[in-house]
């Protein structure tokens, strides 16, 4: 049997791609719990009114609070944030996924959008008409 440390060392890394695993899920729990609570409109309003109080209520770590205060998405990820939950916080901050992408990649918003459009492609197949014939 391999010692546990060996499997930890052998963890695969993918450039520019945080893999949200048990380690992240543990360290990010408080931040993600706060974001999950933003499914509720009341909690979103409470955050807008006094974000420090909401971060205190969910017992965020200092690193997590700092990342939220700075609106630093990469730092939130680093502090264990998961994008599916952070997306709810992004909604409060008025950021859509293109704006999130631009912030994380250091690109201008228009450049980030242009990079998506550069893939621009539509390919369609329809065999239903053949079936009818």
């Amino acid at each position: 049997m391999l010692p546990i440390s060996d499997t930890t060392k052998g963890k695969r890394t993918i450039p520019g791609t945080p893999v949200f695993d048990g380690e992240q899920a543990r360290s990010g729990y408080a931040l993600n719990a706060m974001c999950y609570a933003f499914n509720s409109a009341e909690m979103r309003e409470a955050f807008v009114k006094d974000e420090e109080a909401v971060m205190e209520r969910f017992n965020l770590t200092e690193q997590q609070r700092d990342a939220v205060r700075k609106r630093d998405i990469l730092a939130m990820l680093e502090a264990g944030g998961n994008v599916y939950y952070l997306a709810k916080l992004a909604g409060i901050l008025g950021l859509n996924v293109q704006q999130l992408g631009a912030l994380q990649t250091g690109m201008e918003l228009e450049d980030f959008k242009a990079a998506l459009l550069a893939h621009g492609l539509t390919e369609t197949r329809n065999f239903l008409t053949e079936k009818a014939a």
């Binding site: 993918i14 520019g16 791609t17 945080p18 999130l100 992408g101 994380q104 990649t105 990079a115």
Partner: peptide, 8 residues
């Protein structure tokens, strides 16, 4: 959606 490779 996330990380330095966002938009991949």
């Amino acid at each position: 959606l996330e990380g330095g490779r966002a938009g991949h």
